[in-house]
Simulated assay, not measured.
Amino acid sequence: MQTHEMPRIGLVGSQGAYGRWLRCFFEDRMGLRVVGHDPHGDTALTERALIESVDVLIFCAPIHQTPSVIRHYVEQAAGAERGQLWLDITSIKAGPVAAMLTSQAEVVGLHPMSAAPKSATLRGRAMVVCEARLDRWRAWLERFLAATEADCVRANADQHDRVMALVQGMVHATHMAQGAVLRELAPTVGDLDGIRPFSSVGYELDVAVTRRILASNPVIYQDIQFENPYVAPMLERLAAHIDGLRDLVRQGDDVARERMRETLLTQSRSYVGEQAVAEGSYAFERLGYLLADLREPRYISVFLPLDRPGSLRALLSVFEQRGVNLDSIHSSRSAEGELLFRIGVSRECDAMALRDAIDAIAWQGIGRVVEAAGMATPS
């Protein structure tokens, strides 16, 4: 076996989204050798051979399959896993961690709080770390977590699942229900395109979350609802409050209005606290400004191939030299993972100067204009 400095990594579920991301992460960022097994196209190694050839084994299987997959690997290992580190990457922790603890490996459950990113690290994202049995692998695990650049939070498996009933289960449930209501009622008011001109910031944010859920693998959201034992009690509370609101609205008098304010607004505001309420309100306003920028029809998106100090300054100087005023600038990633700068352009700027700036970005080798909306197509 390898030392704890340069362990060999095994991925169970190597063809899934996180399996593919982890392979790139370990190989490119940590310089480690990675092998995998997956029924969908990665079967060069048998399960037993995979166990025998690695030092760290990571389970990236679908949520509802993960505990049974782990138990199967424990049977296949039959003690060969002694001295290894076993990890899992799932949204539910109690079942997978308990299954891994039936092995003789050291055990840690992980839950990155996002889908597999298009970026090289988990910077800006939380990751829950559930240490269950950890000794000799502690130093390497800390190096791995540091390399991910995730904001790590420690919890036991049961605490994690209780929290996820609120952070994931409740959020997903409300947005899936919103999607169903829109499907049923939007046709009576002109469908989604008819609603869009009337959008508020709150509606835009909710619709973005709903569409994100609908765009993703439905099995993930199914499993988060069905595999976490703490979700059903949460849904009962959520349904009770919705039913109560419905009954108060039907009642419709001043008593009902006062009761709604007290139970759903005043008491919750007191629980959250004035400072947190103020901070949340300000964050909402900032998101509103961001949405307004993103809805501006005149903008260009630019990819900067050279990620080094001065690249952005060179890009902005192109506009400055031609007197083109910029309304906003935001960075994001394309569907392919490229870092793009979305630059909102003043509607009053000179069209010829703007076209000249777009051309200069290319011929000066500063970057590549990916999109130019509300203006002439770049030459």
Rank of each mutant, 00 (worst) to 15 (best):
G79C: 09
G83Y: 12
Q84L: 05
L85K: 07
W86G: 04
L87F: 05
L87Q: 03
D88I: 06
D88S: 06
I89R: 05
T90K: 03
I92T: 15
M100F: 07
L101I: 08
T102H: 03
Q104C: 12
E106Y: 10
E106F: 09
E106D: 03
V108Y: 01
L110F: 08
H111W: 03
P112F: 00
P112M: 08
M113W: 09
S114C: 15
S114L: 11
K118F: 06
S119W: 11
A120T: 15
T121P: 07
T121Y: 10
L122H: 01
L122I: 11
R123M: 11
A126P: 09
M127T: 13
V128R: 06
C130F: 02
R133C: 02
L134D: 06
D135S: 14
W137M: 03
R138Q: 14
W140Y: 11
E142K: 13
F144R: 07
L145S: 04
A146G: 09
A146Y: 06
T148W: 05
E149Q: 15
C152P: 08
C152D: 00
R154C: 05
N156F: 03
A157G: 06
D158H: 12
R162Y: 05
M164R: 07
V167S: 11
Q168C: 04
M170E: 04
M170L: 14
V171L: 11
M176F: 13
M176Q: 14
L182V: 15
L182A: 09
R183F: 00
R183L: 09
E184H: 15
A186P: 11
A186R: 12
V189C: 08
G190I: 15
L192D: 00
L192Q: 04
G194K: 12
G194V: 15
I195A: 03
R196T: 14
S200T: 15
V201H: 02
